[in-house]
Design a protein around this nucleic acid. Structure first.
Lengths: 206, 206
DNA sequence: AATCGTATTAACCAAGTAGTTAAATTATTT
DNA sequence: AAATAATTTAACTACTTGGTTAATACGATT
């Protein structure tokens, strides 16, 4: 039929689904073959080993679930608009594949240098610009006391954690599946509010 | 020697270490037995099956890595002090076992009803009081426009995410191991600042 | 010391596991 | 059409896995 109906594509789709759901250790090559409606030997024919197939899926997931935020950095938005856009793109991207973030973070916690190197290259390629821009904006006078690393950590924590901790958070907040989606959607407006408030004010805290 | 030197305790310690590091699917009964310096059959003798041993460890980790915040809710602190204390206890607890949070969240994402029930009971038992208290404080006039669920989600996200996402965040922020520990420590003061600022101000955001 | 329940071990088992292979089928080139 | 190359399959292999078992050592009670 369409371009998806060739063995390699079918394997990739099946592997993506199963690796993301079960992780490397929980995934079985046979199960991937079944899901791709294909003989197990074919999986090895196209991707030599489980490791190689996994790496391919991991990189793909990295590219499709961590949005390339650098892409909208050149536009002539002001600082606050950039934050709003960042949050919007980030959450929208993750909502398309809600288990992607947990998959990435779990595998990075488990495996060693190999995946970390892949992740490092990705970060360097896709997050350089926005980080530098944020730093310049912050230092340039408007918000001189803000720690750029803290700021970035806070921003990403608020965006990503509700995806990673979904099962527990859903229980703790007592939300149904639909309500949780609305909750995530509402955070697109909530998070910028927090971050901008934070920049404008410097209370003493504790 | 001490009370730790009996087979059951040794198995628990070994299993905790290996399950937390590798997850259920990555852990091997033989490896646990080896780490406990004991015959593999003994592991089954004390804990019938891998599932049963795992459940035991999971519950233990839940109790020792998600702090019982309800415990300091009765004291006569004001709202802001409670937030500060919450953050301090939370981060301190997690720093003692930094991979606990990822372990819990990953296993909840993977396994089904069984673990979720355990988690739900835990939440209901240990988070009822603080949630109600926060709600009462917020509604009682001081911060009437704040959504309690959003507030709670933000608070926990800021505390927990840097533990769950450590490998990636360490890369993105360019921090060494020691610097990352300092970074986590500094967040004990950073997070309350954000949350209190947020309560006091209601900007329009985007 | 004889008895009895508990703790411990080595050897074993059946069911998976990733990966291979050799033969068969299909597609492509000559 | 013949030859050659790429794709697909069933059967197989070597090894790992959770779990069992039957025999043995140990410790307390009598």
């Amino acid at each position: 039929m369409n371009k998806i109906d060739n063995p390699e594509k079918r394997i990739i789709e099946a592997a993506k689904q199963i690796f993301l759901e079960k992780g490397f250790d929980g995934a079985r090559m046979q199960e991937i073959a079944d899901a791709a409606n294909i003989n197990k030997a074919m999986v090895h024919y196209y991707f030599r080993s489980k490791d190689q197939l996994f790496n391919s899926i991991f990189m793909d997931t990295l590219n499709n679930n961590i949005p390339p935020v650098d892409d909208f950095v050149d536009s002539n938005m002001n600082f606050e608009q950039i934050i709003c856009k960042f949050v919007d793109v980030y959450i929208s991207t993750m909502m398309k594949n809600p288990i992607g973030p947990m998959f990435i973070l779990h595998e990075l916690n488990r495996k060693s240098q190999n995946l970390k190197q892949i992740a490092e290259n990705f970060i360097n390629k896709k997050y350089q610009k926005i980080f530098i821009l944020l730093e310049k904006e912050i230092k340039s006078g408007k918000y001189p006391d803000v720690d750029i690393k803290m700021f970035f950590a806070n921003l990403v924590s608020l965006c990503v954690f509700p995806f990673v901790a979904k099962p527990l958070m859903q229980i703790a907040l007592g939300l149904t599946e639909d309500e949780y989606i609305q909750f995530l959607e509402a955070r697109k407006k909530e998070i910028p509010k927090i971050m901008i408030n934070y920049l404008k004010n410097n209370s003493t805290g504790c």
